[in-house]
Each structure stands twice: as C-alpha cells, then as structure tokens.
C-alpha cells in the first residue's frame, strides 16, 4: 500500500538529490549565472541608448533598458534550466538513472511531477542569485517584489521544465538535443517579450508580433515582470498554467509505458 508518507519521502528524496547534484556541479551554477549577467552587463549596456522604453505596465515611469530586460533574463535562466534538466533526463535515461527512477513503486505521473518540482527548485535558486547581483548592479525592484515573484517563478519554472520534459520524452539521443537547443531555446527567447516589448515588435512586423504574443515564454516573462513589480497579470498566469497543463500532459503521455514514445521506439538498447 502506497501511503502519503511514502509519497512525501519520495518527493523529498527526488528534490534533495537534484539540489545535491546542483551543489556538486559548480560549473553549471556558474554558467547559469554568467549567461544572463553577460546580457545584462554587456548587451543591455550597449543597447541602452538605442532602445528607449516608453511607459508600459507594470512600470509607472520611464525605465532604462537594463530594468526592462531583467525579468526576461530571469525567464532565460529558467528556460535554460528547464532544458538542461531535460538534457540531464536524456543523459540519465541513457545512463540508466532515469530507469532507476521509473522502476520505483510509485505512479509515473507522480515521479515525473516530482522531478519537475526538483528542477524548478534549482532554477529558483539560480534566479535569486541572479536577482541579487542585478540588485547590486542597480536594477532594483520594490523589496516586496522579491517575495511576490516567488509563486510566479514556481509556475513559470514548472511550465518551462515541463516543456523540456516533453522534448526529452521524444528525443532519442543526446546529439539530437543540441539541435533542439538551437531550434527551441533561441527562437523561444528571441520571439518573446524578454528583450523588447510587444508594441515595438508590432511596429516592425505583424507576423512576428503574433508569434511573440502566443509564445508561452512571453506569457511567462510577463507573469514574472508583473509579479516582480507587485502586480498580477491574470492573462499571463492563465496562459502559463494552460501551457504547463499541456506540456505536462504530453510528457506524461510520452513516458507512458504502454502508449508513449518509449514503447514505440524501444529502449534503444537492443
């Protein structure tokens, strides 16, 4: 009989393992920080004069470009982490520790969701480290914003992790994953509100504007942006939750032993 205590212990074990691995992999933490910091210190500084930002909600005054892109970079940290933890799932599966997880006596949806929560916990640690450095650099949100952004980060982290998990269930080998990084991460990031507001995109191209608008990553970034400045963007929340449900549902299907992608193509071993 699987009890509530069993579920709790397993969840603790899965999250604990992910955090331990994260602590041991200092390079991963460092690169998770360096990436957005480069964008903030170099890219944003270079474009500061070129891109003036008009007053757009949730901001109440004119803001420098650095302030605009910080929520987008927070999204980027979570996007990379979501993809990276699914990269580790592809790797895990080849190495067998994903199989170790899947053979434990718990429902598969629970194991995958727990794994997702673990990845999200790690991404939130990375985000707060980034926000702390941005604060020292001078990009400062209202102090309470650092609290209100937390629930938003949980939702966006889960959504982006679920996207990665869905991809990992469909990807056969590590080599293919490099392609996915190019074809998923970069388009997702550039076709969003992370670097430029929607109205600016609309001035250039109606098509690109529409793509940016429906991109779930845009919604995630806007959810984070608003939460960091103490406002709730209900529409962004709804879209992010919807995307989470779709991606997670797809991932659970993908890992379903009877119907999923695994069954269709086999373990790849024999």
């Amino acid at each position: 009989m699987t009890t509530a205590a069993h579920y709790a212990r397993a969840l603790g074990g899965i999250v604990g393992r992910e955090v331990l691995r994260f602590v041991h992999q200092r390079e991963r933490f460092l690169s998770a920080l360096v990436r957005p910091l480069l964008w903030l210190f170099v890219f944003a500084a270079g474009f500061r004069a070129a891109l003036g930002i008009a007053i757009t909600p949730p901001y109440e005054t004119y803001i420098p470009y650095e302030v605009y892109i910080v929520p987008g970079l927070v999204g980027m940290v979570q996007l990379f982490n979501g993809m990276q933890s699914s990269l580790s799932m592809v790797y895990d599966r080849e190495m067998g520790s994903m199989r170790m997880l899947l053979v434990s006596p718990l429902p598969r949806w629970f194991l995958l969701t727990a794994k997702l929560l673990a990845g999200t916990a790690v991404s939130i640690l990375q985000v707060y480290a980034f926000l702390a450095i941005a604060w020292l650099y001078g990009v400062q949100a209202p102090p309470l914003g650092y609290v209100t952004v937390l629930p938003a980060l949980v939702v966006t982290g889960l959504m982006l992790g679920a996207l990665g998990m869905l991809l990992s269930s469909a990807i056969r080998q590590l080599e293919n994953f490099a392609g996915v990084m190019n074809f998923v991460i970069f388009p997702t990031f550039f076709l969003s509100t992370a670097l430029y507001p929607l109205w600016k995109m609309q001035e250039s191209s109606e098509l690109l504007y529409t793509i940016c608008l429906v991109n779930p990553f845009s919604q995630a970034v806007e959810l984070i942006r608003h939460a960091l400045y103490l406002s709730l963007n209900a529409q962004a929340l709804a879209w992010t939750v919807l995307a989470l449900a779709a991606f997670l549902g797809g991932a659970i299907f993908g890992y379903n032993p009877a119907r999923g992608f695994l069954a269709r193509r086999g373990a790849g071993a024999e």
Partner: peptide
C-alpha cells in the same frame, strides 16, 4: 548500465533509492 550518481557519495545514493521506496 551503471545507474549511480557519480558525484554523490555511496550513502547519498542509497538513501535516495530508499526514499523512492518510502
């Protein structure tokens, strides 16, 4: 295939597995 976490200790690996089994 090997299924241990190379960066974790023997104890951490075993306790992780035990947690999965409740």
């Amino acid at each position: 295939q090997p299924t241990l976490d190379l960066d974790l200790t023997v104890r951490q690996n075993l306790l992780y597995f035990a947690a999965l089994h409740g």
